[in-house]
Amino acid sequence: MKNYVTLERAKQHLNMDHDLDDTLIEAYIGAASEAVKNYLKSASAYEPERDSNDDPILDSSGDPIYVEDSAGDKIVRYAVQAAVLLMVGFLYKDRDENPDSAFDRGYLPKPVTALLYPLRDPALA
């Protein structure tokens, strides 16, 4: 699975200017990206191209066409990037516990779900 944010972006979010925890942060990025993907279920984390009415543009098969960067990679929605960064922050700050009770066991933190909920496909269980 492709991670939704880069190591550099996560370190910027954490206000980190050293490389000592890079391996740990990369693991958190992977875990946070997987958690976000699981929460979204079948909904896409990528930004769809939109027409002048702000409706997604579909290909001949009825699938959305996604915005791509100059390298041809799909662009991750801002809400998804923010959710992953928040999750990385929670994992990095509170490595062994949940002292602020920001989330219940088995659930994502409330700020993360607030960003993702509108994107989620609720029809799938």
Rank of each mutant, 00 (worst) to 15 (best):
I25F: 06
K2T: 11
P99N: 12
P118R: 04
K37C: 13
G30S: 13
E97K: 07
Q81E: 15
N3M: 04
P48H: 13
L119Q: 06
L58T: 04
A123W: 08
L86F: 10
Y78S: 11
D63L: 05
E97V: 03
A45L: 06
G89Y: 07
S70H: 14
K11I: 05
F103K: 09
L14F: 08
L86E: 06
E97M: 06
V80W: 04
L86A: 02
Y39N: 00
Y39Q: 02
V84R: 07
E49N: 05
K110G: 01
G89V: 00
D17T: 09
R95G: 14
Y4G: 00
N15G: 08
Y66F: 15
M16H: 00
R77P: 07
E97Y: 13
M1R: 12
T113K: 04
L116H: 01
H13C: 09
H13V: 01
L119P: 08
D54C: 05
A31W: 02
L85I: 03
M1T: 10
N38G: 06
L40F: 05
D22H: 02
R9Q: 15
E47M: 11
L24H: 06
D54T: 03
P122N: 12
D54W: 10
L58K: 14
L40N: 01
D73F: 11
Y28R: 14
P118L: 09
S42A: 13
H13R: 12
Q12L: 14
A31C: 01
V80R: 01
E8N: 11
D104H: 04
L58R: 13
P64F: 05
V36K: 08
G30V: 00
D55Y: 12
T113L: 07
H13T: 01
L7C: 04
D96R: 09
